[in-house]
Structures are given as C-alpha cells and as structure tokens.
C-alpha cells in the first residue's frame, strides 16, 4: 500500500502516532538499564504511555483508511520513508541526561501541540488529545524535574545535562518548521500552525532552565525533514529491531 496516497487527515494521524511510537520504543530500550530502580520503572511507564497513545492514533487511522488496515500493520509493515515522526524522537538514548533532555524538549512541545488539537473539530481526534494531555502534563513535569535536579545538582550532573541539551538542541527546529502534513492539518483546523508554538515553547523551556541554572543552548539548528519521511540513520536500526519479529513471523500471535 502507498501510504502517501491516503487522505492528508489520515497522514496527520500517522504523523502523530509515529512520534508517540518511536519515542515510546526508544524509552522501552531503557527497561532493565535505568540508573536507579525507580527511574527504570518510570522510563518503562513513559514508554507504555506513549505506545498506548500511538495505538489510539493508529486505531483511528486504520479505521478510516479501511481496506483491512490494522494498528499492527501501521506499526510493523511500513518502511522508514513511510514514518513521519520528527527526527528528534528517533535519536538514540545516549546517557540518562541525553534521554531526559530529549524527553523534556519534546514533552514541552507535545503539551502545546495537544492543547491545540483538543480544540479541533474532529471529535475522535480531539478526544485522544484531551486524554493524552493529562498524561503528557505528568510526563512533562517528570522530565522538567529531572532537568532541574541534574542542572542544579552536582558539577558532574550539571555538565552532563548541559552537554546533552546542546547535543539535542539542533533537532528542535524541525518541531516548528511546517511540513506538508502540518500545513494541511492547520488548514483543516486539525492541528496548530506549528510556527506559532515556538515562542510559548521557548517560554516553557526558559522557565525550567532558569530554575536548573542552565542557559538556553544557541547551537545552530539542523535542517531536518523527518515529517516528510527523510530520517537520520538511527530510525532504520530502530525499525529493524522493532519490526523484525512480526516480519519474520507474520502470523505470530502474542
């Protein structure tokens, strides 16, 4: 199936689902490797939440696309170019500071994005956003607290989170650069004009960084097109692991 030919509103659902699934999968890689037991559990919980959210978007997309499409088909049988997630969320976990920096920068964006989507005229999509907003707020508080704890912690934790923010910062511009899928979603009133989220996002980030004794990174941004299916090399490896089993054993049930 050519996923690019499905209706742009359905493609928007896939874009939203892909962000949640890919970030959720990344976080699941921490299971059993967390720096402390509580955080290991926390990271697995974050992963579960996001995979659960991806399922809701995919279930809705599958229902609308029809022709026997299922949530599993969308997750496991699309190729790299078919995924429309931001390049930010596919970035490797790195150390705990890298993961939390990625999470914090995305959570703040995710909150603003969902606040816009919950107002949209598509009742099914708005319902998913309204539900997700509660848990996203909880996640955003968690990642913000960690940024503060590390930034305002020891010299070691401060330098680690500071370096992590600098590493991940160049991937944030894509969040606010409208791709085709964003433009159509905004036209149809489904999602926000992503450019308008930049300032409120910076405000959220600045508030937390100030409390964390960290400065706003000013690294040059990368020109990224994940939302158009052009990804970093990391996504291919992630998909190979995530999709390997259902592709090798297409009838597997669990």
């Amino acid at each position: 199936m050519k996923w690019d030919t499905c209706d742009p509103s359905e493609q928007y659902l896939l874009h939203l689902g892909d962000d949640a699934l890919i970030l959720g999968h990344r976080l699941s890689e921490w299971c059993g490797h967390g720096p402390i037991l509580e955080e290991d559990i926390a990271l697995s919980n974050l992963a579960l939440d996001l995979v659960g959210l991806a399922r809701q978007y995919y279930q809705l997309a599958a229902k609308r696309i029809g022709s026997g499409t299922t949530e599993d088909r969308l997750a496991y049988w699309r190729g790299e170019r078919d995924f429309k997630n931001h390049v930010l969320v596919e970035q490797p976990n790195g150390d705990f500071a890298d993961t939390m920096a990625r999470q914090f920068l995305f959570d703040a964006f995710h909150l603003l994005q969902l606040e816009a989507i919950e107002q949209c005229p598509d009742a099914d999509l708005a319902a998913i956003a309204r539900k997700a907003l509660k848990e996203t707020t909880y996640r955003a508080q968690h990642s913000s607290e960690w940024v503060v704890r590390m930034g305002d912690g020891t010299d070691e934790s401060h330098s680690r989170i500071s370096a992590a923010l600098k590493r991940i910062w160049p991937y944030t511009d894509e969040l606010f650069q409208p791709a085709e899928v964003d433009r159509i979603a905004a036209e149809r009133g489904l999602g926000p004009d992503v450019q308008s989220l930049r300032e409120p996002w910076l405000e959220l980030i600045r508030e937390v960084l100030a409390k964390a004794q960290l400065s706003l990174p000013d690294m040059p941004q990368k020109l990224l097109r994940g939302k158009s299916g052009i990804h970093s090399e990391s996504l291919g490896f992630l998909l190979a692991e995530m999709q390997g089993l259902p592709r090798a054993y297409p009838d597997a049930q669990w």
């Binding site: 509580e38 955080e39 559990i41 926390a42 919980n45 974050l46 579960l48 939440d49 703040a108 707020t137 909880y138 955003a140 508080q141 968690h142 913000s144 607290e145 503060v148 959220l204 508030e207 937390v208 409390k211």
Partner: peptide, 30 residues
C-alpha cells in the same frame, strides 16, 4: 498546568501522618 507544579504531600495510609515525601512519580503499575 505548570511544568514545575508543586505536589501536595499525601497522608500516610498507615499512620495518617502528613509528613511524607514522594520517592518516584511512577510505580509498579501505570
């Protein structure tokens, strides 16, 4: 709505003391 929301301390379900602290925002189930 704040990212740096203050959490209200809970009462201990056993001794009812309000002197409690959060160890982790996540637990054994969702």
């Amino acid at each position: 709505r704040s990212l740096l929301g203050l959490s209200i301390p809970l009462n201990c379900p056993r001794c009812k003391s309000s002197q409690t602290e959060r160890i982790s925002a996540f637990g054994s189930t969702a």
